[in-house]
């Protein structure tokens, strides 16, 4: 409970940051109406009054935050329904994409890390590293576009985007077929990270007494590392997972746009183009809340998994 309360200042600062960015001196919500040639000055004034934009900034902020805390995130200018609903409708899609990408990155990263650590061949170690760093260096929006160009436009092997075939009831295989390409593209970026942690961790642990004991019982190096070293290495990954989430969400935002994936990132992009500020704020807020919640959960889970760091 104390840990949850400790998050309050952070949440408050996040809300201030988001509000501040949207109310930067130029181009804020008020300018949207002013830019419309059909709008008369009187209509603009009435609009501002209606949305509360004529109030001083701190009053606007206070009103926004106090409504926020009771679940009123404002009304979408475009969809004319609560911004919270607009955002929440998209959240599961983003979670599906990031979850799948995480899985791809973890499986490949842990596999490569294990390979690089267990193998005695310098060439294998080197190659694993080169592959991982290259994967980390490719911009996802570009690799995504190239994948779409080659496998969708030219070869017609994969769909051009979206989450399912239009006009067909959603079924698992169709969903997987649409998910595969964006998840692989997004996941490939994180392979290097996981690989590095796993390899460094296993290399450290390999010289520990308990691994040597296991070896002296007659286990091979691979067996000893898998059975005794691996759990020790995987534990810190839980924390790393929480720290990597913001980057993963950033990556998902641009990947969603490329693959027409109807998640938070594509919503943010569309809402920015339409200047739908309540939804813009909502999308960023949901992403930030997801990060805060996952950070909290990883802290708690870590305490459960490793009794040495249990919190009072």
């Amino acid at each position: 409970m104390r840990r949850v309360a400790g998050l309050l200042p952070r949440l408050l600062l996040i809300s201030l940051l988001l509000f501040g960015v949207v109310h930067l001196p130029r181009g804020g919500p008020a300018d949207v109406y002013a830019a419309d040639p059909a709008a008369t000055p009187a209509a603009i004034e009435r609009m501002k009054e209606l949305w509360g934009l004529d109030q001083p900034l701190h009053v606007q902020y206070w009103r926004w935050v106090s409504r926020l805390s009771v679940g009123d995130w404002g009304t979408s200018y475009v969809e004319r329904r609560p911004a919270m609903h607009v955002v929440m409708d998209r959240l599961p899609n983003t979670l599906r994409l990031t979850g799948a990408a995480l899985l791809v990155g973890l499986v490949a990263g842990v596999g490569l890390g294990l390979l690089a650590s267990v193998s005695r061949s310098a060439a294998v170690k080197h190659l694993a590293r080169v592959v991982a760093v290259l994967g980390m260096s490719v911009p996802t929006f570009w690799s995504g576009a190239i994948v779409l160009l080659v496998f969708s436009s030219y070869l017609r092997w994969i769909p051009a985007g979206g989450m399912g075939t239009i006009g067909r009831p959603a079924d698992f295989l169709d969903g997987l077929w649409h998910l595969a390409a964006p998840a692989l593209v997004l996941g490939s970026v994180y392979v290097a990270q996981w690989m590095r942690y796993v390899q460094a961790g296993l290399d450290d642990v390999a010289s520990e007494d308990f691994v040597r004991t296991a070896r002296s019982k007659g286990l091979t190096r691979l067996q000893a590392l898998l059975k005794h070293g691996f759990p020790n290495v995987m534990l810190p990954l839980v924390t790393v997972l929480g720290l990597e989430l913001p980057r993963l969400l950033s990556g998902a935002m641009v990947t969603e746009v490329v693959f027409s994936w109807p998640g938070i990132g594509r919503l943010l992009h569309g809402s920015l183009v339409a200047r739908d500020y309540p939804v813009v704020l909502g999308a960023l807020l949901v992403a930030a809340l997801a990060v805060v919640v996952v950070n909290l959960l990883t802290d708690l889970v870590y305490g459960v998994l490793d009794p040495r760091v249990r919190y009072a």
Binding site: P9, R10, L13, I14, L17, L18, V21, V22, L24, R26, G27, G28, P246, R247, L249, S250, G251, M253, V254, G265, L268, H269, L272, V273, V280, A283, L284, A287, A288, V291, V292, N295
Partner: peptide, 22 residues
């Protein structure tokens, strides 16, 4: 606190909003 708050918001999203407005 400032670092934690900033790191909680996906950097690209924040930059997108600032870029769109500025």
């Amino acid at each position: 606190l400032a670092a934690d708050a900033l790191l909680s918001i996906p950097a690209l999203g924040l930059a997108m909003v600032a870029g769109a407005i500025l």
